[in-house]
Simulated scan of single mutants.
Amino acid sequence: MSKLKLGDIRDEKPVKLSVELPAQVHRDLVAYAEILGTENRQTLEPAKLIAPMLERFMKTDRGFAKLRKERRSASPRSAQER
Score class of each variant (00 low, 15 high):
30 V>E: 09
70 E>I: 08
21 L>N: 08
82 R>K: 15
50 I>A: 09
26 H>G: 04
69 K>M: 10
43 T>R: 09
77 R>C: 04
63 G>A: 12
35 I>Y: 01
66 K>P: 02
58 M>R: 11
81 E>H: 12
46 P>E: 04
62 R>I: 07
2 S>L: 10
59 K>H: 12
35 I>N: 05
45 E>L: 05
31 A>I: 07
13 K>M: 13
55 E>T: 04
60 T>R: 12
36 L>V: 02
18 S>Q: 13
80 Q>M: 15
50 I>T: 07
3 K>A: 10
65 A>R: 15
51 A>S: 10
81 E>L: 15
53 M>G: 05
25 V>I: 13
56 R>I: 00
80 Q>C: 10
73 S>T: 11
51 A>T: 08
53 M>H: 01
64 F>Y: 14
51 A>L: 04
76 P>Y: 02
16 K>T: 15
11 D>F: 05
2 S>D: 07
45 E>F: 01
34 E>G: 07
8 D>R: 06
50 I>Y: 05
74 A>N: 10
27 R>N: 15
45 E>N: 12
5 K>L: 13
51 A>R: 07
6 L>R: 10
6 L>Q: 10
58 M>L: 15
47 A>R: 08
1 M>W: 02
51 A>F: 04
66 K>A: 15
21 L>T: 06
36 L>G: 05
78 S>N: 08
13 K>Q: 15
21 L>C: 05
43 T>M: 06
18 S>A: 14
18 S>F: 09
8 D>F: 07
16 K>G: 14
9 I>F: 02
55 E>Q: 07
29 L>K: 08
68 R>A: 14
53 M>E: 04
7 G>C: 07
7 G>R: 07
43 T>N: 08
23 A>D: 12
30 V>G: 03
69 K>W: 04
8 D>W: 04
